[in-house]
Design a protein around this nucleic acid. Sequence first.
DNA 1: CCGGGTTATGCAACTAGTTGCACAATAGAC
DNA 2: GTCTATTGTGCAACTAGTTGCATAACCCGG
Lengths: 185, 185
Amino acid sequence: MSLPHAILTALLERPSSSGLDLTRRFDRSIGYFWSATHQQIYRELGRLEAEGHIRALPAEQPARGQKKAYEVLPAGRAELARWTAAAQDPKPHRDAMLLRLRAAAVVGTAGLEADLRRHLELHRRQLAEYEEIEKRDFPPGEDSAQARLQHLVLRAGIELETFWTHWLTEALAGLPDAEDRPRGS
Amino acid sequence: MSLPHAILTALLERPSSSGLDLTRRFDRSIGYFWSATHQQIYRELGRLEAEGHIRALPAEQPARGQKKAYEVLPAGRAELARWTAAAQDPKPHRDAMLLRLRAAAVVGTAGLEADLRRHLELHRRQLAEYEEIEKRDFPPGEDSAQARLQHLVLRAGIELETFWTHWLTEALAGLPDAEDRPRGS
DNA sequence: CCGGGTTATGCAACTAGTTGCACAATAGAC
DNA sequence: GTCTATTGTGCAACTAGTTGCATAACCCGG
């Protein structure tokens, strides 16, 4: 339901992007909260063009392997505005790590620790990346409406990663099979 | 990839449950971080039985509309333990509300406020529900390994909902089109 | 000029999840 | 006794996302 709107947003933020341009930006910024592969993006670009929401910039390169840049048409912008304002129920979460912890409560925590540590490291790295972006793109004093909204979205990413690093640290501390726990305490 | 393991966990937590029993518990507890509909659950119960991970308790009720209770077989418990300990990469997030905020940065925030308020209310309610569960099921002083792990999972839910209520409150405060904002400030 | 790497576009098949509906048994209302 | 609501099971079709692979142009070294 949302991939076309993610693409419209990305294409409005930076017009005349190609499929590969968009793919690269889905790997960096937009993809942090709406990931997509290049195959999905190409498929969706085709649909959006067929619906009249975007169009390929005329460059008379008809063939495959040739760069093809798109821009958003008024109908596409209108659709994005409509979707943004429309009421939407939050999708139910699915988090495999929480499920694994709950499973571990019945079948035991053996073997879990290594992957908890790995995830902790991944979340720490993601957090560092977000903080880097914040330092680079949102220096203090900036306050255009657009910048404030984008900063708010980034803050969500930062706070979520902060939560996960804390939570995983706590989980690791509470594992019963830590072999180096002092006996006497 | 994880629905069968969610079902195995639920079925180990409370054996000889039927499809509908499981569905109800997916609506309350397990479903908070791994939701599933009854259709998914029935389909998966069939697969798990075919694979020899669970079996229907013998009750010689052959027909449709008759309650059918399942239990986990040793092979199912082993599979759950294997899965719990196996390394798994975190799945990429998809959050429509963050995407909408980012879209609003380019097409404007008109019409967004109502749904932000609605989501805030939903998250507040979910948070209240989690806190109710915590008070009921995890009184202070409890410290079996199983209870600590389950409490940890619940804490994740509480902290995530706390984050969202804060974040949405901040987002609402920052919307540019608040009509009752004093002029002079 | 041709072989291999990079950039770029795209199809096809598969997997997981959702939506809509159907059907059987049972319990209580009238 | 039969009508209706509730409980319980389940199939089928659809939608979204993933995985694997194919193809074409271009660029650079030899």
